Computed example of a mutant assay.
Amino acid sequence: MEEYQTDEDFKDENYAEKRLPRGEYENCTFENCVFANSDLSGTIFAECTFIDCDLSMAKLHKTTFREVKFKDCKLMGLHFDDCNDFLISFDFEACLLNFSIFQQLKLKNTRFKGCKLVEVDFSGSDLSSSVFADCDLSGATFENTNLEAADLRSAWNFVIDPEKNKLAKARFSKENLLGLLGRYNIKVE
Rank of each mutant, 00 (worst) to 15 (best):
G124F: 07
S129E: 14
L87H: 12
T145C: 15
A140T: 12
D72T: 08
N84L: 07
N84P: 01
S41Y: 13
V159T: 12
E67W: 11
C48V: 13
C33H: 13
T64P: 01
L60D: 00
F70W: 03
I51K: 04
L137R: 00
L97M: 12
C95V: 06
H79S: 14
F50Y: 05
L117Y: 06
N84F: 03
G114T: 11
R171Q: 15
F132D: 00
T49V: 09
G139P: 02
A46S: 10
V118Y: 00
A36M: 09
T145H: 05
R171T: 10
N157A: 09
C115D: 06
K174N: 12
V131E: 03
D91Y: 15
E148Y: 02
N146F: 08
N146V: 15
R66E: 10
G139C: 13
A155T: 01
L147H: 00
I101P: 02
K164H: 13
L60C: 05
N176E: 05
F99I: 04
F172K: 10
L40V: 07
D81F: 02
N37F: 15
T145N: 05
C53N: 07
C95F: 12
F80R: 05
N84Y: 07
K166S: 09
N98K: 14
C95P: 04
T145I: 12
H79P: 00
W156E: 08
Q103N: 15
L105M: 14
L78G: 04
T141P: 03
I51S: 01
E143Q: 13
A155G: 02
G114A: 09
C73R: 05
S100R: 04
A149K: 11
E163S: 14
D121Q: 02
L117E: 06
D134R: 09
H79K: 15
G124P: 11
A168W: 01
D54H: 03
L78M: 06
M57F: 15
K74C: 06
E47Q: 14
K108W: 04
D121R: 11
C83L: 13
C73H: 05
